[in-house]
Design a protein around this nucleic acid. Structure first.
Length: 271
DNA sequence: CGAGCAACCTGCATGC
DNA sequence: TGCATGCAGGTTGCTC
């Protein structure tokens, strides 16, 4: 269940177990993720230590002296720290074994995820070099958004889910942020007022920050034994609540499709 | 530029 | 119980 908060939670969860530790061994059981995982990865990363962990949007970067492991969890991926010799479950595709006897284990039923080894400048990589700002930084502000939406004739929901505009806003949080900002998901992006932009920026930040906080609770389960799904589910205002009353005005929430993605909103609050 | 669609996969809920 | 269908938290890349 990886949206930005989940990836951030994942990063914080694995960091204490892998930062500064040396890669002893790695096992690629299933090389067929979204991009094929080259066999040479194992020998390239052997003996290298993790110097730094970073998240960019939903990408996780594990930096070493010789290159960077780029990981994306796709729709169904997860990372866990497991003890040495822990038996594999179905869809446990990759193990990275560290010098502290811990294993970083990648699990991904749908295999939409990404696992790449990059030796060239990471900022130049095609997957990263066109990304928009991080939503939780100052670079993502009303002025920036307003400018980025100029002449964009797509629904605002499509725009905020576009990683070239801002990274890390997935379907759930796009729905939630638009609800809090009281903006219709179908409103064309270029028609947003400066006030709309300001509200939307603030609500995106708010909703993501809140989810990261809650994700911190998920974190313990996640590292210890198994990832528990959707702890912040209980906080959702609109996503998954179509047909139920709006918490603000009791109007029945409506579900439509925007770009084949489930979109739920309040037709009154988000007129 | 943008809408719409297909693609990459499996698991789960639903309906017959 | 089995089988077909549709849906799912992401992203790229192709048409038109």
């Amino acid at each position: 269940m990886p949206e930005l908060p989940e990836v951030e939670t994942c990063k914080r969860g694995i960091e204490p177990y892998i930062l500064g530790y040396k890669i002893i061994n790695s096992i690629i059981r299933t090389p067929s993720l979204r991009f094929p995982i080259p066999k040479y990865i194992s020998q390239r990363i052997q003996g290298l230590s993790i110097q730094h962990l970073e998240r960019r949007g939903k990408y996780l970067l594990l930096n070493t002296a010789k290159g960077t492991l780029l990981i994306h969890l796709g729709m169904s991926g997860s990372l866990r720290i497991v003890p040495e010799f822990e038996p594999c479950k179905k869809h446990d595709h990759i193990d990275i074994v560290f010098s502290n006897q811990k294993i970083l284990r990648y699990h991904d039923p749908r295999r939409f995820g990404i696992f790449l080894w990059i030796e060239s400048d990471i900022d130049q990589h095609p997957l990263l070099n066109k990304l928009g700002p991080e939503p939780l930084t100052k670079a993502f502000n009303a002025k920036y958004l307003s400018h980025a939406l100029h002449n964009r004739k797509v629904p605002i929901k499509t725009a905020i889910m576009d990683s070239h505009i801002v990274v890390g806003v997935g379907n759930i949080y796009a729905n939630e942020a638009l609800y809090y900002a009281r903006i219709s998901p179908t409103k064309l992006a270029y028609l947003l007022s400066p006030k709309d932009c300001d509200a939307l920026v603030n609500k995106i930040k708010k909703v993501l920050a809140k989810a990261i906080k809650v994700g911190g609770t998920t974190l313990r389960d996640f590292v210890g034994s198994d990832g528990k799904p959707g702890y912040f589910k209980q906080q959702l205002q609109v996503y998954g609540r179509a047909g139920s009353p709006c918490y603000r005005c009791q109007t029945t929430l409506v579900e439509i499709r925007i770009n084949q993605r489930s979109t739920v909103f309040c037709p009154i609050c988000q007129a």
